[in-house]
């Protein structure tokens, strides 16, 4: 427990001081991006890790929120109204998404969510009168809550950090709640949960809605971060990204998606400056993770550390036990 607290404190200090020690504005922006994707990945992890439901269509929900902000702002509405419209639309979208995809689980769920994500991408790509097609929609300026402009990267970073902290806290509360516990129950033993009187479908539906909420929050932050949205944000690759973050970091943990988001975004934004074939590097990293740490980086490292500690604790004992024998001549 104390180790967790020390870790949390260290993490908070590192995150709070980011603008002080990273080498420039660009890297501050990369950190904002990591946090945004961490929120997105947390939302996806609620389904993957705790519900056992792998969704490959979440970029669609992310995109609904982003497009809603961009479209309503372009229509001349204020920031608060735009954010509210985006949240409502994304949640309605999530409800439909869940109603369709929760008819099945397992691989069927993967395929249906993928197809729904493609459907939303198709709308964004082709419904030009609303989405402006491939040209996308730009957002002129970021909001200025309490009179503080979010245009400087550092200000935007701290705003993102606040939302990120709240999202992690919300996810932590959700996972620890009775609803979260019953979600884990539906993941492991859906039939027993049903027999115990839980409404398995409803539990999963609630998890989808919470996941959609986190995704929408990430989508809203994203549109203010890039100030531009195009169908590129809704592609299959974009949907696969948070899933890859979650599984590579370790599904079913709160830290895993954050680590995964950092890994992917760092390779994408920083390693790509040095390596042309960074996509191949990313793919190779994923394959390596599957081979060496199939449970993901966070649980995998935990297991390694535990094994190392155990080996170290055992080593003196083994040496002590071996000593009297080794001195003895064999009869």
């Amino acid at each position: 427990m104390t180790a967790t607290r020390i870790g949390l404190l260290a993490g908070a200090v590192v995150l709070l001081t980011v603008p002080l020690w990273v080498p420039g504005d660009y890297y501050v922006s990369v950190c904002s991006q990591i946090l945004i994707y961490a929120i997105f990945a947390l939302g996806v992890d609620v389904l993957i890790g705790y519900g056992g439901l792998v969704s490959l269509g979440h970029a669609g929900l992310f995109g609904i929120a982003s497009y809603a902000v961009a479209y309503t702002l372009a229509a001349g509405v204020g920031h608060i109204a735009a954010v509210i419209v985006a949240l409502v639309l994304a949640l309605v979208g999530t409800a439909l998404f869940a109603a369709l995809s929760l008819r099945v689980t397992g691989i069927g769920f993967i395929m249906i969510t993928l197809a729904i994500g493609e459907l939303l991408w198709g709308l964004a790509y082709r419904w030009i009168s609303v989405t402006n097609g491939d040209n996308g929609i730009s957002v002129a300026n970021r909001p200025a809550p309490f009179g503080i402009s979010l245009n400087p990267p550092t200000h935007f970073y701290y705003a993102t950090l606040v939302v990120f902290a709240l999202s992690v806290f919300a996810a932590w509360v959700f996972i620890g709640s009775p609803l979260g516990a019953s979600l884990k129950g539906t993941r492991d033993q859906p039939r027993r949960m049903n027999a115990l009187g839980y409404h398995v479908w409803l539990v999963r539906f609630c998890a989808c809605m919470f996941s959609g909420l986190l995704t929408a929050i990430a989508g809203i932050l994203f549109i203010y971060y890039t100030q531009f949205i195009s169908p590129q944000t809704l592609t299959l690759t974009a949907s696969a990204e948070p899933v890859l973050m979650v599984i590579s970091g370790g599904s079913g943990t709160l830290l895993g998606p954050i680590v995964g988001a950092a890994l992917v975004e760092i390779v994408k934004n920083i390693a790509s400056a040095y390596i042309t074939r960074w996509n191949m590097l990313l793919g190779a990293i994923f394959v390596a993770i599957v081979i060496f740490m199939p449970e993901g980086l966070v649980p995998g490292s935990r297991r390694l550390v535990r094994a190392l500690l155990k080996a170290r604790a055992k080593a003196p004992a083994v040496a002590a036990a071996a000593e009297p024998n080794s001195g003895e001549p064999t009869p």
Partner: peptide, 14 residues
């Protein structure tokens, strides 16, 4: 299933 998704997507990236 999760590892399969990760590895097949990783290969498709490669």
């Amino acid at each position: 299933e999760q590892a399969q998704v990760l590895v097949t997507l990783g290969i498709s990236l490669i």
